[in-house]
């Protein structure tokens, strides 16, 4: 494996794997930590996970693609989640998705070209009383209105610059 091909740092995954017993039952928990550390599941890292946990690589991929929490593609600096659960749906979540598409030029499960934002839809984040809800980065916005999306995006860019 050349240096160029192996562009991801395998340091963090090695650290994560130390915390778990090397068995299949650890797989999902490990992938979650990996996802948090790398912001996605890089292929090479999955190889390391498979080897260390003694799970076939095919199984690792099968789990990685089955669960929605995982992305095999690099994601934007800020992840925008729009809740499209029932309560949010009937209070206008669809309008939020459209407005984001107009503002960023990308739809659900896509990342802007400058890698600043990834848009995702989720089914209920448990804040239904404040529907419709969108989460920009770590910040929850309740009773979100399309007209306020511009402001949310600007705040996220500032946050990230900090």
């Amino acid at each position: 494996m050349t240096q160029e091909y192996c562009a991801v740092d395998l340091g963090p995954v090695a650290e994560i794997l130390k915390d778990y017993p090397p068995e299949e039952a650890s797989l999902i928990q490990v992938l979650q930590d990996v996802h948090r550390a790398y912001n996605y599941l890089p292929c090479d890292v999955l190889g390391t996970v498979a080897k260390t946990l003694n799970v076939p690589l095919a199984k690792v991929f099968s789990v990685s693609t089955f669960y929605k929490a995982f992305s095999l593609e690099p994601q934007g600096d800020t992840i925008i989640k729009i809740c499209v659960g029932t309560a949010c749906h009937i209070r206008g979540a669809g309008q939020l998705v459209e407005e984001l598409e107009r503002k960023l030029g990308v739809g659900p499960d896509q990342t802007t070209e400058d890698r600043k934002f990834t848009v995702k839809t989720v089914n209920c984040v448990g804040a239904c009383a404040m529907a419709p809800v969108m989460i920009v980065g770590e910040t929850y916005h309740g009773s979100a209105k399309p007209a306020r999306i511009g402001k949310f995006l600007a705040e996220a860019e500032v946050d990230h610059a900090d």
Binding site: E24, S26, Q29, V63, F70, N123
Partner: peptide, 24 residues
């Protein structure tokens, strides 16, 4: 055990597979 964001994993047999690190 943290779920992976799959609704079907709320179903009992799927949930148990998921805890075991498998596809639910």
């Amino acid at each position: 055990s943290r779920g992976g964001g799959a609704f079907v994993c709320g179903e009992s047999s799927a949930l148990m597979l998921s805890i075991a690190g498998k596809v639910g």
